[in-house]
Design a protein around this nucleic acid. Structure first.
Lengths: 107, 107
DNA sequence: TTGATATACAACCATTTGGTTTCATATTAG
DNA sequence: CTAATATGAAACCAAATGGTTGTATATCAA
């Protein structure tokens, strides 16, 4: 795994917004174009586009071109990264480990 | 569990900062005063105090008075809340559930 | 070819965030 | 009592965030 603090920051930051969590949820089961998604929220196309950029930067979704569309797909890998992190904190609390080296890189 | 979006926002937001994650990590195994913690980071006492306020607002740590000190203790309960959330997304991806009602409140 | 649709991107704005310094107050130690 | 320590809280600041509108470009449909 081997994560930098910045990567972890980006993942949790991206998850700290209800619209973005909803985009992840939807695209985990079914990919969607940006306009598909933009229809669903009460904000501009550009705002949704920005949310998707944040999610992409955190690795929580991927984009791929499909004609004139960009299809967005949720990436369960990044979610598992966050889960692993939280599990590590849980193990710290249980006293079974005292460091995060197994998960975090040294940079 | 029954969480509002705002509560979830606050938890993930609080976790999206390396200093705050470190405070949680330390105080999960051993409580500490604010000055104890402030010593450890290269920033002002007030800055650390603010990070602790953010963590407390998210329920990730609790404060309790001990003489002139305030002891900070990590709260594994809030961590488990985040874990539960992420597990729900995992189950969505696996097609085993398609909603988050079990975890999220309707407000 | 032309018009409609899908996306990208820039400029702008208000609010929030993460830091600072400073001052006030409470508590403990001598 | 007095000095030192621990905390709280305000005022301030730069940068980031989350939204907007407007414009440009690419692709599809008729």
């Amino acid at each position: 795994m081997d994560l930098s603090n910045d990567e972890v920051d980006r993942i949790f930051r991206a998850l700290a917004d209800a619209t973005r969590r909803d985009i992840v949820r939807r695209t985990l089961t079914e990919e969607a174009s940006i306009s598909d998604l933009a229809h669903r929220y009460d904000m501009s196309f550009a705002a949704v586009q920005k949310h998707i950029t944040v999610l992409e930067g955190a690795g929580l979704v991927t984009k791929h071109r499909k004609g004139r569309e960009r299809r967005i797909r949720g990436n369960p890998e990044a979610l598992r990264t966050a889960q692993t992190l939280l599990n590590a904190y849980e193990r710290i609390w249980q006293g079974r480990i005292d460091r995060l080296d197994a998960v975090l890189a040294d940079n």
